[in-house]
Amino acid sequence: MPFLHITTRIEGHPYDNLLREKGGRGFPTLQFMDADGNTLAVQSERTVAGFERTLAELTRLLDLEKRVAAGEKGLENGLFLARFRLGRISYAEAREQAGRLKDLTAEQKRELAALLLDGEVQEIISGAGRDPEKIAAAGRRLKELLAEGRMPSEKIRPMMWSFLLRYADQEGDADLYARALAWYQEQYGDEPRAESFLKRLQERLKELRAAGS
């Protein structure tokens, strides 16, 4: 059921603070809620694919919760992963609890490692804020992860490359800027609306190359 909430700042407008009440902090925010208005999942990607992925993950979690409530056993690891995937368990909590999980399958181990990496990347970026020194430290850490071949999931990559673009710009790191630009071109190269955006990035890359030569 599609519900559009508009924050108006009109005095007396019903539910004008709903976004804040639901933990949202910016526009746009996309959330799945139950019929009581409880937040079930936050969709971080503003794409149809992101919508479908979040809905599939939420559907899976709701199914697992229903089966566990009905008394079915052996679903603990799957439930943990489903909750972590949807942000119901924080990265810090997951990191702390992960070691206590028993009898993870190989696939579950891979998924847990991938989710923890996503959580680490998000933590690195969110901890950087706007402080150039913190951005530099976070950027260096992300570069290390890339050098180790540790790439977060597609869900996190837009955030990571956006951050690395900013970091590379700040640090004058033309090679990293080019790598970020290549990612943007791969993602949006066929999108006419992205043409001017990509052109600006290409021009900035030339400036960085010229400044570094």
């Binding site: 519900f3 508009i6 925010t29 139950d34 079930l40 939420l58």
Partner: peptide
């Protein structure tokens, strides 16, 4: 209808 809400938060101000 037994459905979930998909909520898009935006602003007009």
């Amino acid at each position: 209808e037994g459905k979930l809400l998909f909520t898009y938060f935006t602003r007009s101000y």
